[in-house]
């Protein structure tokens, strides 16, 4: 069972060019019904039918959790990606019918927090937009620190500043504004939770700095934006199903398994949630582990793989599916 089993038919109600690299897409239920309620930090999986290719990418919901007439996501164009964002930018237009999953939240606010400290890098701003709306409505104290390469690439920076005022601090690298993490994380009241979403380096810096300062892991929350890496095509044998499947260069192993009709649990499709952890029956070759889930000894054992992001090269890979 997984969240993408029960897809919701939607219609693209609006496409907005936010800046040269980011577009916002708005969806309404095809029947005009309200979409499912959600909490700030939740994502949806968007199914993209691109000719014969079916891709599924996860995007954070940025719209208000209190307005369910429509959902909004923002997509950054990745020209050297495997084509999902390019498809969204080039092919998706208002009036188009698409399918999305119900929202799943792997990056929820800890509602016990005495303060919510949000740190965003670039397109990582999107989950915080829903969270700030939620926090404002529920009266929860929060602060956003938003870093980007330049003001022109920093989506929504101006409107967030206008809407939330002093609760938002912005840092644009091109004019030499840098976020001093150590100073920020050294001066937070007990009971603060920190949330970070952005590039890998930023997440690592926040987690490492907070940990070094003595923050408990339970107070550090992060969400990786990892789309499945591309690679060479490979074949896999599914032992229980008794079939061989081919994984294309731009396709993830998970997508190939799904396309064969074999069920796999999954939530994040980004190597973080652990749901798609699959046992390897036989492996003659090398696995490129791209996930954040498996332990080092599990990787070394060649007994486990996360099909949503990891790939294989070699003679034979047999999975317990």
């Amino acid at each position: 069972m997984s969240a993408s089993d029960n897809l919701i038919p939607v219609i693209v109600s609006k496409v907005v060019e936010v800046n040269s690299i980011i577009k916002r897409f708005e969806f309404k239920h095809i029947n005009g019904d309200a979409l499912p309620a959600f909490s700030g930090g939740a994502h949806i999986v968007v199914e993209m039918i691109d000719g014969a290719t079916k891709r599924k990418n996860a995007y954070s919901l940025m719209s208000s959790p209190f307005k369910l007439g429509q959902y909004a996501i923002s997509v950054r164009r990745e020209d050297d990606g495997r084509g999902g964002s390019k498809f969204m930018h080039e092919k998706v237009v208002p009036g188009m019918e698409m399918k999305i999953s119900a929202p799943v939240n792997l990056f929820a606010l800890d509602l016990r927090a005495k303060k919510h400290l949000m740190i965003a890098g670039g397109i990582g701003i999107t989950p915080f937009m829903a969270q700030m709306t939620q926090a404002t409505e529920l009266g929860l104290p929060f602060e956003l620190h938003y870093a980007a390469r330049s003001a022109s690439q920093a989506a929504y920076m101006g409107s967030l500043k206008a809407q939330f005022g002093d609760a938002v601090a912005c840092y644009c690298a091109d004019i030499g504004d840098r976020l001093n993490l150590e100073a920020l994380l050294s001066d937070q009241p007990l009971g603060t939770h920190v949330y970070v979403c952005g590039p890998k380096g930023m997440i690592e810096a926040v987690v490492q700095t907070a940990t070094n300062l003595g923050w408990p892991a339970a107070h550090i929350h992060f969400e990786h934006f990892l789309s499945p890496p591309m690679g060479k095509a490979f074949s896999v044998h599914l032992a229980k199903a008794g079939i061989d499947i081919d994984v294309g260069p731009e396709q993830s192993l998970l997508e190939a398994i799904e396309a064969s009709g074999t069920p796999v649990n999954c939530l994040c499709r980004a190597g973080a949630c652990g749901q798609c952890e699959t046992q390897i029956v036989a492996c003659d070759g090398d696995i490129t582990h791209n996930d954040h889930w498996l332990e080092d000894d599990q990787r070394a054992s060649k007994k486990f793989i996360m099909p949503c992001v990891s790939r294989f090269s070699g003679k034979r890979l047999e999975l317990d599916l």
Partner: peptide
């Protein structure tokens, strides 16, 4: 626990 943590909405 693993099952419940991944329980999807509407299912």
């Amino acid at each position: 626990l693993k099952f419940l943590l991944s329980l999807p909405q509407g299912q």
